[in-house]
Amino acid sequence: MIAGIETHQIYAVTAGLLFCMSLGGLFLCGHFFKKIIATKILGTAVFLLFISLGKRNAMEFADPVPQAMVITGIVVAVSAGAFALALARRIWRETGQSTFEDKP
């Protein structure tokens, strides 16, 4: 049974688990900083699923189309992350708040 497992299946299942874990983290973590990290992991999980599905029938090289899209996606995710950090820092500077909760 173990011999029937393919590389891409292992990573695809991991991607699913990572996705759910970081989705929960996105809701449960209070601090902006952690929310940004959770969003980044969420995105990475989607990329991982995408690439591992692209590997399904490839011989030695994975499907180039998902690869190109994931490279694009990584850059976009980083720009979004940098923008989110800038916003969080502005909110922190203006209000001293680091969460969406109202101050007690």
Binding site: T7, Y11, G54, K55, A58, I71, V78
Partner: peptide, 14 residues
Amino acid sequence: LAAPDVALAEAAIG
């Protein structure tokens, strides 16, 4: 997963 381009991008940018 045989995606070295993505590995480079992830390590450097991500």
